[in-house]
Write a protein that binds this DNA or RNA. Structure first.
Length: 322
DNA sequence: AAGACGAAAGTGGTTGA
DNA sequence: TCAACAACTTTCGTCTT
């Protein structure tokens, strides 16, 4: 597992993702008119025309609105475009019943015609290899995410990433299961609700190593620009799995924040940090959990928890007397 | 007996020559 | 391509409650 944890300073130096996230002004002319051109997938300066980033992933709606009135007009009713369905949820459904739109039975002399329409409709819907690929992939995505209880928004994000991968022909030589699992992993991270690779590989039809490899490949090729996961994002989930209450979460967040300030978290595995914070705070809040139990839900070893919590406790100046 | 502790060796990936 | 390396794991014997 482990995608490797790089010191943040290095990561930012070599790939200044943060800068791109936050960018407000053009590095060339310092104009503040930087906008996202969704149509071409570019981040560009409207003043001097500099393309700041040409790999911008479109996370907005598929239409543009220039004022509130237009927005209202363009936000159409009906189902939105939906990345979870291989045809984006916009396809026509033809019922198998021999009834017309008014519920009347279709006369026999037209039956043959209807059958032919249905047949072609079916063929067109899943027309080429790409569409068929998407169809199976999205079924698998659905299976994974419902097994893991992930919300719809994450499924959509994952589906969008997968779609991009298909479009760029990145699936060749990799199994659908592996790529869909890694898209899901990426989607979770993008939505700030990270799952570990281990958690995903437990329900996926692919092993952890391959998912990790596929993920690295995707994030490089699609320029996903995902920051290393933050321990805070794991905290709540682990705490609830351990049946710990709100104060422990708060305390844990507090501990992580302090550790961050002291530079203790850089280059360390986020799950380990989260686990250590939980260990400390559960003791401080008088509802201790064993290292063993925490290690289990966090997917790290007790040894790691020990190492982390020692470092943190020492630096923060917390002494744990048992 | 359960939990915590820590030393030592092993693992898989990154980095830099 | 390869060795050095950091983080983390596995394993195991010891100490503490």
């Amino acid at each position: 597992m482990k995608l490797g944890y790089v010191k943040m300073e290095n990561r930012l130096k070599e790939n200044p993702q943060k800068k791109i996230e936050k960018i407000q002004e053009c590095p060339e002319c310092s104009s503040e008119h930087v906008s996202k051109d969704y149509h071409r997938g570019e981040l560009l300066c409207e003043n001097c025309g500099l393309v700041i980033d040409d790999q911008y992933i479109d996370d907005g709606p598929e239409w543009r609105a220039f004022d509130a009135k237009q927005k209202e007009k363009r936000s159409r009713t009906g189902a939105p475009m939906n990345y979870l369905s291989h045809d984006k949820g916009l396809s026509t459904q033809i019922s198998w019943k021999n009834k017309d739109a008014y519920g009347r039975t279709i006369p026999h002399k037209n039956r043959g015609q209807i059958y032919r329409v249905r047949k072609w409709h079916r063929r067109i819907r899943v027309s080429n290899a790409t569409e068929r690929n998407l169809a199976t992939a999205l079924r698998e995505l659905d299976r994974l995410s419902s097994k893991m209880g992930l919300p719809r928004s994450i499924r959509e994000t994952a589906a969008m990433i997968y779609r991009k991968a298909v479009e760029k022909n990145l699936i060749r030589g990799r199994s659908i299961e592996t790529v869909i699992a890694s898209s899901l992993y990426a989607g979770c991270r993008k939505c700030d609700v990270p799952r570990t690779l281990t958690e995903i590989s437990n329900v996926a039809q692919a092993d952890e190593k391959q998912i990790g490899r596929a993920y690295r490949f995707l994030s490089r090729e699609l320029q996903l620009k995902l920051l290393p996961t933050k321990p805070e994002n794991y905290l709540k989930r682990f705490c609830s799995k351990l049946d710990l209450d709100r104060n422990v979460v708060n305390k844990g967040e507090n501990i992580i924040e302090q550790a961050n300030k002291l530079g203790l978290t850089s280059g360390k595995g986020p799950t380990g940090i989260a686990a250590a914070a939980i260990y400390i705070s559960s003791i401080l809040e008088g509802d201790p959990r064993t290292q063993r139990a925490i290690a289990e839900v966090a997917g790290v070893t007790e040894v790691t928890i020990r190492n982390r919590y020692k470092e943190i406790a020492e630096e923060i100046g917390i002494t744990i007397e048992t």
